[in-house]
Design a protein around this nucleic acid. Structure first.
Lengths: 208, 208
DNA sequence: CGAATCATTGAACGTGCTCAACTTCCGTGG
DNA sequence: CCACGGAAGTTGAGCACGTTCAATGATTCG
C-alpha cells in the first residue's frame, strides 16, 4: 500500500497493520482533514462510518503492509467464539481509550501541550533507546501531524522550534529527533502518553 | 443521583441511563474539564479509564436515574452469550462512532459550527415537535456545554446570541429553544448530527 | 425582598491561522 | 559535476477567533 493511498471505511472489514504507519481519518467536504488515530505495526484498524460524519478512510502515511480481516464470513461466530470475541472487544475497547485521550487533547490542551504529548507518545511507540537518549524516526510530515493534532502545519513547525529551544528534544532532521529526558517532555502535558509501556500493563488488568 | 454527583469510572461496571442527563468526562489536575460524551435516557455509559488520562467519571448533569450493570458476575458469559455480547459490542461500537464525530468537531470545527451541530444534535435527542417547530429543553448550563464543545462558557453564550441573530433558533429562556428549520441549522456545520433519526437506520445496517 | 447563581456583554489580550517569502533538501537533467 | 526545479520546512507580519477578566442583567430559591 503506497503512501497516500486510501481505503474506504467499511465496518465488516478490519486491517491489521504489519508494517508502516497508517492513519484513520475523516475528510470534510471543504477539504479539512482530521486524523482520528494513528496505527503502528501490531495495531488493528477498525474504521467506523456514520452517515453523519463525512468520509472515513484508512490512509497509508508511509508505504504500509496491511492484513485484511474480513469479518463477514465469521459474522456468526462473533459472540460464540470466545477468543474471537475477546480479541475484537479488547480492540474496540482500546480504540475508545485512545479516542478519549485524543478528545481531551483536542478539546483542552494548547499547541505546546499537544505537541509534547505527541512527541512523547511517538517516542514510546516507534522510538528506540540509544546511548544518547530515545531516538525516534517520525514517518509523517508536518501536515499529517497537524491534522492529527487539530493544528496547522506552520503552527506545528513553530512549536517544534520552541520545543527545540526549550531543549525538550533534539531535532536531527525534519523527521528524526532525540529525547534525552522523557519525563521532562511528558511533564509538559497534563495527561500522559497513551502508549507508555507501564500504561499497557495497567490496561490489561482493567480489560473485560 | 443528584446534579453534580460523580461516580468514579470502573471498567467492569456500566450504567444504563433511565432518566436525566449524564456526562462522561475527564478532569485534568489543573481543573480543566472535558466532557467526552453526553448520555440521554436509553443510552448505556461505558467509562474507560487509562492511567494515562486523568480521572474519568460519570456525572449527573440533571438529577438522573441510573441502572447499574455489573459485569464482574457475568464476566465469564461475555463471548459465550451471543445476546449479551452483541449488546455490549454494539454499545462500545456506538461509543467509538460518537467519539469520532466529536473528535472532528473539536479538532476542525470553529465555534459557530460546533454550537450549531450541538443544537441540532440535542434537538434530535431530546426535542419534541410542536406546531411552531422543534422545541428543546436544554438540561445543561453554559459551562457544561462549553466543556463538551471545548470552548468556554462566555464564548458559548456569545455564539448563542449570534445564532439568535441569524434566526437559526429562537431562545425562549436560557434553557429552552425552538428550531423552526432543522435543515438550515444543520447546514451550518460540515458534518451532520450523530443522533438524527435517519442516521440510526443506516448505523444498524452497518453494525457487526 | 434579598442573596446567590447563572447568563450576557464589553474590552483587552493571546494563541493559532492565513498568506507570503525564504531556505533546505532531493532528485533530475544538462 | 553543477544547475535547475519541485516539494517540504521554517519564519515573519497581520489578522481573526476565542479567552480572560470584569461589570451588568436575569432568574431562582430561600
Amino acid at each position: 500500500m503506497q503512501r497516500g493511498e486510501r481505503l474506504r471505511a467499511g465496518c465488516l472489514k478490519l486491517w491489521r497493520v504489519l508494517d508502516g504507519l497508517v492513519a484513520l481519518g475523516i475528510l470534510l467536504p471543504d477539504g479539512r482533514r482530521q486524523i482520528v488515530c494513528l496505527s503502528t505495526p501490531g495495531d488493528v484498524v477498525c474504521p467506523v462510518s456514520t452517515q453523519a460524519v463525512g468520509d472515513m478512510w484508512v490512509e497509508a502515511l508511509t508505504p504500509s503492509e496491511l492484513e485484511e480481516i474480513d469479518l463477514s464470513a465469521q459474522h456468526q461466530n462473533i459472540g460464540r467464539d470466545p477468543g474471537l470475541t475477546a480479541a475484537l472487544f479488547s480492540m474496540v475497547h482500546q480504540q475508545v481509550k485512545c479516542a478519549s485521550a485524543h478528545l481531551v487533547t483536542l478539546g483542552r490542551l494548547d499547541g505546546m501541550e499537544r505537541v509534547c504529548l505527541f512527541l512523547a507518545d511517538m517516542a514510546w511507540r516507534v522510538g528506540q533507546d540509544t546511548p544518547g537518549g530515545r531516538r525516534v524516526h517520525l514517518p509523517l510530515n508536518r501536515e499529517d501531524i497537524a491534522d492529527y493534532l487539530g493544528l496547522n502545519a506552520e503552527t506545528v513547525s513553530r512549536i517544534f522550534s520552541r520545543v527545540k529551544k526549550a531543549k525538550l528534544a533534539i531535532f536531527l532532521s525534519p523527521t528524526d529527533y532525540l529525547v534525552t529526558d522523557m519525563t521532562a517532555l511528558e511533564r509538559r502535558a497534563p495527561i500522559g502518553p497513551t502508549h507508555r509501556p507501564t500504561a499497557a500493563e495497567d490496561d490489561a488488568e482493567r480489560q473485560f
